[in-house]
């Protein structure tokens, strides 16, 4: 296992931009994104990996940035909600009322985006397996479900 000690300058590839940042080994990716890169789309809902509001893509896979250490992200491609521009799933979230307060929305969209990249037509079980890692307290999930199905149905 690799060990890290003390502050270290690393380069992070986030949304196809290279950022040089000085990090301590205990700093999470979420903290670096929010506090140093000013990418506040990912949210600190629980900082325990339970709610998914901080979800980002690491090499195209959804991951909770509150339980990823920044020092381990060198050489990896990170995508936050800010890196998604006019994607079909974002548009569908508007069309199908997939959000209300919006706090969980970044995480849900990033997760759903990765799901829809991996599978052309994910089935109910696959959608459930992926999205049950994120919590939404406003919508009752109906709008989110409809948004994903809209993207699938248009394929």
């Amino acid at each position: 296992m690799k060990t890290y000690k003390g502050k270290k300058e690393i380069s992070l590839n986030v949304n196809n931009e290279i950022y040089k940042v000085i990090v301590k080994p205990n700093e999470t990716l979420l903290n670096i994104l929010r506090d140093k890169l000013e990418l506040t789309g990912p949210k600190a809902g629980c900082e325990n990996g339970d709610c998914g509001a901080c979800t980002v893509l690491i090499n195209d896979k959804p991951f909770k940035s509150c339980i990823a250490l920044a020092v381990e992200m060198e050489g990896k491609d990170i995508t936050t909600i800010e890196g998604l521009k006019k994607t079909k799933i974002q548009k569908a979230f508007i069309d199908k009322e997939g959000y209300q307060c919006g706090y969980c929305t970044s995480g849900f969209i990033v997760n759903a985006y990765a799901l829809l990249n991996k599978y052309k037509k994910p089935n109910e079980t696959q959608i459930k397996d992926w999205l049950n890692s994120n919590l939404c307290r406003c919508t009752g999930y109906e709008g989110i479900e409809r948004a994903i199905k809209k993207v699938i149905d248009n394929r």
Partner: peptide, 21 residues
């Protein structure tokens, strides 16, 4: 009618208190 905060909320632009400097 669609809400007017949609584009901000689906793009991570909506600023909540902890996002403000």
């Amino acid at each position: 009618i669609k809400r007017n905060d949609g584009l901000d909320k689906i793009s991570g632009n909506q600023k909540y208190l902890d996002d403000l400097k």
